[in-house]
């Protein structure tokens, strides 16, 4: 293993060890996705029972939306909260004086975000299949592209949140839980972009998730793969990620200049 990979694994190992010893943290990973799936699954079943076959298709799209939105949410929260764990344990001083490069820190946070997301979403996917006979995998291999795009969007947002924490200290930590909810109305998770007012549609266009969910509905409702939507999602994600990296690099340097890395927990 190269030294770089070893350093990335070292930081991931620290968090895996933490989860191994803390069952409340493990439960918390799956709690919210399961709760969301339960509520929306019963709601969808109610509409399906009242509305017939069309409602069944729409109900399936709603359940798919719930599950896929959790991919973005869990990816963003997983990365932000893993960084916050270092602040809460007042360990950042040791981490930043080790040979761990900033990009290796980000890679370790992404690795932990992926593990946390899978630990949260897989139980919810299984629950949807067991309770509501909704099989997300029926979307086919394109599901991998949906997952990938939503994860990357989550990571870009998380990197921006971490940058704000570096800039404003732990006072900005509430953003780790709330920021993505602010994007939800423009992400077209449960409804198509076309139902939004004109201005909101313009905003939705620059949100990668809106293209993913339009693509998901194309698969689940029309049975076709909307490559154009996936292309837009990928392009926007590249732009978001590039922007987030620039912000992170800038804020990390500002934090080193202002001494924020020493007093970030305050």
């Amino acid at each position: 293993m190269s030294l770089s990979l070893r350093r990335i694994w070292g930081l991931m190992f620290r968090h895996i060890a933490l989860y191994r010893r803390s069952w409340p943290r493990l439960v918390e990973l799956a709690y919210w996705p399961i709760l969301q799936m339960s509520i929306w699954g019963f709601t969808a079943n109610f509409f399906i029972a009242r509305g017939g076959s069309n409602a069944a298709v729409i109900g399936g799209a709603v359940m798919g939306g719930v599950l896929l939105w959790e991919v973005a949410l869990r990816s963003q929260m997983g990365m932000s909260i893993t960084f916050l764990e270092e602040i809460w344990s007042r360990n950042l001083g040791h981490v930043f004086v080790s040979p761990l490069r900033p990009w290796e820190l980000v890679a370790a946070l992404i690795g932990m975000s992926f593990l946390r997301m899978m630990a949260g979403v897989i139980p919810a996917v299984l629950l949807a299949w067991a309770l509501y006979a909704f099989n997300l995998l029926s979307a086919g291999p394109v599901l991998v592209l949906f997952f990938l795009n939503l994860m990357v969007m989550g990571w870009a947002v998380a990197l921006a949140v971490i940058s704000l924490i570096l800039r404003h200290g732990a006072g900005a930590e509430a953003l780790a839980w709330s920021v993505l909810f602010g994007i939800t109305p423009f992400s077209a998770v449960f409804y198509p972009v076309s139902v939004l007012p004109h201005v909101a549609r313009e905003i939705a266009f620059i949100v990668p998730a809106s293209h993913v969910f339009e693509g998901m509905r194309a698969v689940l409702i029309d049975g076709r793969i909307a490559w154009d939507e996936l292309g837009w999602a990928a392009l926007l994600n590249l732009l978001w990620l590039f922007g987030a990296i620039l912000i992170f690099r800038r804020q990390f340097q500002v934090a080193r200049t202002r001494g924020a890395l020493i007093s970030i927990g305050e």
Binding site: L3, R6, R7, G10, R14, H94, V97, S98, P99, L100
Partner: peptide, 30 residues
């Protein structure tokens, strides 16, 4: 990579064991 630092005012993660803490820094310092 060839330096290190100790201060009672900078903590090590308290929820994991001493051995795990040392393993983490063993990895970070290669």
């Amino acid at each position: 990579a060839r330096m290190n630092f100790s201060s009672p005012y900078v903590s090590l993660p308290g929820r994991i064991s001493v051995r795990e803490n040392l393993q983490v820094y063993g990895h970070l310092y290669g």
